[in-house]
Every structure is written in C-alpha cells, then in structure tokens.
C-alpha cells in the first residue's frame, strides 16, 4: 500500500468481558489484546461467538460485564458512533455496505465525521488503495460483486483514518485467490502501516500466516491463544482447525 491511510494504532483490550443479547451472555471471561503494528486474529468454529465479541467491542452488542479499553480510555458500552469517532473502524461480517447508496456515497458516509472539504481528498486516497472501485463510483453498492463489495466496506472505514481496524471475516464468500490477496496485501498492510488490526477469520491457515498472535474461541470463551508458529505445533489446534492430522508446512 502506497498511501498512508491510518493513524498510528492504539491498544484495544478487553478484561473479563462478557457480552450477549437480551441480557444473556454469549461470550464470557474474554481477555484479548490487540496492539499497534500487529494483526491479532480470532479463530473458532461457527457459533463460537466471534462476531458477538467484535460487536461488543464496537458498541453494537451490549457488554454485560468487564471492560473494553482503547488506549487509556474505557469505551465499555459507548455508543457505536462515539467509538467510531475515537478511531475504531469496524467492518461487519454481513450488511457491510449501504446497498441502495452508490459506491461514492458509501465512501462519503464513511467520511461522515470529516469536514466536507476533506472528503474528496480522502476518497481519492481510498481509491488509490482500491483502484478497482474507481470506475464504479456511481454504481449502487448492492450491485457489486463479493470482492468489490468487501473492498468498498474496507474503503468505507478507511475514510476516517482509523487507528484500529476490527474486521469480521472479510474473506467470507470470496474466491480463494481474492481472499489471499485481501489478507496478505491489505489486512497485513494495515498493520505494517502501524494500525492495530483485530481480525476474525474462518480460514485459520490463512489467518495464521498474517497474524502476530491468535486467539481461539470455543463456546464463547478463549480456549487457546498463542503465536501462530506455536499454534501450528499444537496437535489439538492442528486437529480442529488446520484440517486434521496433516501437519502444515511451516509458512516462513
């Protein structure tokens, strides 16, 4: 990535966090930490509470206990729009764009908190990162392909130069080549630029390749955590996430 899109990162951390819907906890006793310049990934089976955890960090789902901290600030149960203002960009797993709005309007909403005159330059900067969006600016977001749509969703959060990127399965439904490119080029790229990246990913192998640290969620709790190279040696992890039995070749 040639363009500076994000501000220096901040630490996003939780302590003894529990969160869920209608007062019922889906995730409990969660302590995770994501630091600037790193990709921190969360993997785990479907329904283990990965999305719920991310939503509780960005104010979409209610925190029932414990704390969420951004740098020194306690952002527990802050309104989503306030958390956005503090520099956390969140790309949800689904419903990640505004379908009836054009690509351009989606980016403009991404820059909603900016002064009007700052927006065109930011849009240009985001288009430098995702040049494919350039010639579809007037197309409705609902008409984009899966890959284009994810780029728009990421482009939307980059409009505010976030310090922290919270990405929920950005590669879901993408062709493997596109998914790899998205993770290795963009997601890793954000961290290389100094941002803090918290990534939920189904593709455990691909996630490990770009992560500095990985948490494994099971039944709403962190059941395992470690550096990728250690997890790759862990037989339980290999068995459940890296496609049983066969030890993966070291990636670097």
């Amino acid at each position: 990535m040639s363009v500076d899109l994000s501000k220096a990162g901040m630490v996003l951390a939780t302590s003894d966090l529990s969160a869920g819907y209608d007062g019922r906890a889906i995730v409990s006793e969660i302590a995770v930490e994501a630091s600037p310049g790193q990709v921190i990934s969360i993997v785990g089976p479907n329904g283990s509470g990965k999305s719920t955890l991310l939503k509780s960090l960005v104010g979409v789902v209610k925190v029932l206990g414990g704390h969420v901290k951004l740098g020194d600030a306690d952002i527990t149960n802050m309104a989503p729009e306030e958390i956005a203002k503090l520099g956390v960009g969140y790309v949800p797993q689904i419903d990640d764009v505004f379908p009836p709005l054009s690509v351009k309007e989606n980016l403009e909403i991404g820059g909603y908190l900016l002064a009007r005159r700052e927006i065109p330059a930011r849009v240009d900067a985001v288009l430098e990162v995702f040049p494919r969006l350039k010639n579809m600016m007037t197309r409705k977001a609902g008409k984009l392909s899966g890959g284009e749509r994810k780029m728009l969703a990421m482009g939307r959060v980059l409009m505010l130069s976030p310090s922290v990127l919270v990405l929920d399965e950005p590669t879901a439904n993408l062709a493997p080549i596109v998914a790899t490119q998205l993770l290795e080029e963009y997601v890793r790229g954000f961290a290389e630029h100094g941002s803090t990246v918290l990534l939920v990913e189904q593709r455990a192998k691909a996630a490990l390749r770009i992560s500095d640290w990985t948490y494994v969620l099971g039944g709403g709790r962190v059941v395992l955590a470690g550096a990728p190279k250690d997890l790759e040696q862990n037989p339980v992890f290999v068995e459940s996430f890296l496609g049983g039995g066969t030890r993966p070749a070291p990636t670097k």
């Binding site: 960005v58 104010g59 979409v60 309104a79 989503p80 729009e81 958390i83 956005a84 203002k85 969140y90 949800p92 419903d95 990640d96 764009v97 505004f98 379908p99 009836p100 709005l101 309007e105 403009e108 909403i109 991404g110 909603y112 908190l113 939307r156 959060v157 505010l160």
Partner: peptide
Amino acid sequence: KAMRATSANPSLARNSG
C-alpha cells in the same frame, strides 16, 4: 445521505459515526 444510510442500514450508519 445520512438519512438514506440510516434507512438502508442503521447499525452500519452508527458505526460510520
């Protein structure tokens, strides 16, 4: 535009500030 965004996806609108 904010009205249209709120109409299309209120949750995402809030996440956008």
